[in-house]
Design a protein around this nucleic acid. Structure first.
Lengths: 395, 395
DNA sequence: AGAAGATAATGTAAGTTTCGAAAAAAGATG
DNA sequence: CATCTTTTTTCGAAACTTACATTATCTTCT
């Protein structure tokens, strides 16, 4: 008993407009005629709708295409400078603020280092607010042109106006981060878990493109997953769906930092791999260390491939996705070196029918796409819920 | 990039009508005024819409309610004999055909025993077709009054006009069961996995009522799960989502009949429990045998609770559901005796935040609800897609 | 008993929105 | 320059919901 929502005749317009805009965005450029075909709308509707969008300069003309004996098609595209999106990556060691145009091209960027112990919410918020000012002035963009600010943070984010955050690694427990930020900026805010934001980016601009039924798996120090069904990400009742890393794959197995035992994360998370290979995790430079371990041929490496394969197999069986994308810096390192072994383990541990329906691929965006993912939250909102409210002239 | 569908102004009507009908169905009875409140539609819309539905006798008046000083409200309800639904349970030992009215009250029922080796698709189809005739004539219902036939089968069913079935236990591999049946009856067909159908029933009429975000877990000889997000069941790209039983909980653990090792089913499936308790599975009467084992205090019993708890915890972490319903004959037996232990194991193996958001309860419909679930498939279609096509008077 | 008041349900006119068909626009071709 | 072809816009019709006004039906007060 869900989706019980009254529909009025204006929702039709809103929905069709969003669909048209989305189609045009992901097609790149298309003529009105193409849009008729792509959207299924009538010529009249496409004409009036594109007319509106042109007038609002949300879209623009992009040249003509020569025709064979008729009126040439005028190509249309989304105006990449109609608006901008700010994407923020809040990580353990830094706060990064980036400005993107609508094509998700980076226009400006600024980094603030965080010292290990300094994760006060207020400090982070100050960095973000300062960063917004910096990237805007660097790129010569005014606040009015910014469609919103997306922020990716570690931890669980509860949706709502306050965006309450629980982030163990930061020592944040119930921080109303949205409230904190909105005190300093009038821009619309979108806060989500960084891994989920990145999953969104991979889904829209990376290896997940075109899949309506996908799982994006992020492996770094922690391990998470974004489950997408019919184009919508699975949120769960308290917005914490996707905690894949604490799936138990060996009851009573290795202790995990979550306090449990046998979690997937305790086998394939960055620290876990190093520890199992007998390398100290006290040093800095895990990245190089991990690369060395993976290339060393330690028995722990082959095991890691198996564990990851098992974890993926569990997803294949339960969710039967069209595609699984492996991302995160550890995920990418593992995938580059061990993809055949991982696939074999996944195949051996899943049912033949769903396995055959799933393609397991590596992420394409690299491990630094959190800010892009965060900006994608803004983009999503823009594409779904673009105003469509024309001001009615009075008198 | 999904749900790209053109909407026209008629879809508004269709959607609102479906919503109103659904609301009325699950409310039981309501006045037009109540419906205004419940649906959010305007008085006029509710008035015309109920007028249509009354004329088509899909709904009916159900008395008045005295008011305190005004025109009394006329109560409306769905007409339970507007149409009927046939539900079929195809199991290893029998084919059961039941007839339900729209209130899902059983009106007639017939059973056909299947001999262990006799699972030819043709035979099963003949039983079903014969059964439909029997229940219809027993209840005095004509074919024209039947809205459809829902069939629950073991195995994986691929959606589509043919309803191709892969059922290992039956030796069916790619049987186009829908084609087989539709050759013998003009009624609309809905075929799905029996466990999923039952999950649907539990969701609508059992312990899952009202939850938009739920997982229904079925434990019998096999183990499966129905994942529901926002009221829609998770199908997966090839309709085989929900194979929870072959989730690996102990890498390299007990061998499972699927050929893998360490599957959940190899620990909490009926045979698995008996085997681990040292009881032969060759005998008949597993049900009594299992009850005896569970009451015996064998160490295998406590372990079973733990394994089930771990399995549930994995679901809690990954999907963050509002509710988990435990069903299936083994699930119910376990739940009745060991629910506290199961809950404790689930709590210990899941993250605190999502666990707190989930309530884990026992199914309410008993283990024989597959036919009801199958009929629910018909009901769902009726509520979503009721005709709404008025014949336009000509000239 | 009759009038007044209150609540429920139904018409009516207005405002959106999409659609099909016809008209207009814009270049290619001979 | 006239004709053809293809794209795009315009126009009237049909379908819906909504707000407002009207009718229906029961209770209560005088």
């Amino acid at each position: 008993m869900a989706r019980l929502e009254r529909r009025t005749v204006r929702d039709v317009r809103k929905g069709n407009r969003a669909m048209l805009l989305r189609t045009l965005y992901f097609t790149g450029s298309a003529s009105r005629n193409d849009l008729i075909r792509l959207t299924g709308l009538s010529a009249a509707t496409v004409s009036t709708m594109t007319g509106d969008l042109l007038e609002e300069s949300i879209i623009m003309e992009a040249g003509q295409v020569d025709s064979d004996g008729g009126r040439p098609r005028v190509l249309l595209r989304v105006n990449p400078t109609y608006g901008y999106a700010v994407g923020v990556d809040v990580a353990e060691t830094h706060v990064r603020v980036e400005l993107f145009d609508l094509e998700m091209k980076e226009r400006a960027k600024v980094d603030y280092a965080l010292r290990p112990a300094r994760h006060d919410p207020e400090l982070v918020a100050r960095h973000i607010l300062a960063g917004i000012d910096v990237v805007l002035s660097d790129a010569g963009v005014t606040t009015g042109q910014v469609l919103g600010v997306g922020v990716g943070v570690p931890g669980i984010v509860r949706r709502g106006p306050d965006f309450v955050i629980h982030a163990k690694t930061f020592g944040w427990d119930g921080v109303p981060f949205g409230t904190l930020l909105s005190a300093g900026t009038p821009l619309p805010l979108y806060v989500d878990n960084g891994a989920k934001a990145m999953g969104q980016a991979e889904l829209w601009f990376g290896s997940g493109r075109g899949a309506g039924n996908a799982v994006i798996v992020l492996i770094g120090s922690g391990v998470g997953a974004t489950v997408v069904s019919d184009g919508a990400t699975f949120q769960g009742v308290s917005s914490s769906a996707g905690e894949w890393g604490h799936t138990k794959i060996i009851v009573g197995g290795r202790p995990c930092r979550c306090g449990g035992r046998g979690c997937l994360e305790a086998y394939i998370g960055a620290e876990a791999i190093l520890e199992r290979a007998g390398v100290s995790t006290q040093t800095t430079g895990w990245q190089e260390e991990l690369a060395r371990v993976l290339d060393s041929g330690s028995p722990a490496v082959a095991e890691t491939a198996t564990y990851l394969g098992v974890g993926l197999a569990n997803l294949v069986n339960l969710l039967n996705p069209e595609r699984i994308v492996i991302g995160g810096w550890v995920g990418l390192m593992l995938g580059e070196r061990l993809l055949p072994e991982i696939l074999q383990a996944a195949a051996e541990n899943s049912l033949a029918q769903p396995y055959a329906a799933t393609s397991i691929v590596l992420g394409r965006l690299g491990p630094d796409a959190v800010a892009l993912g965060a900006a994608t939250l803004v983009l999503r909102n823009f594409l779904d819920a673009t105003p469509a409210s024309r001001v009615t002239a009075a008198g």
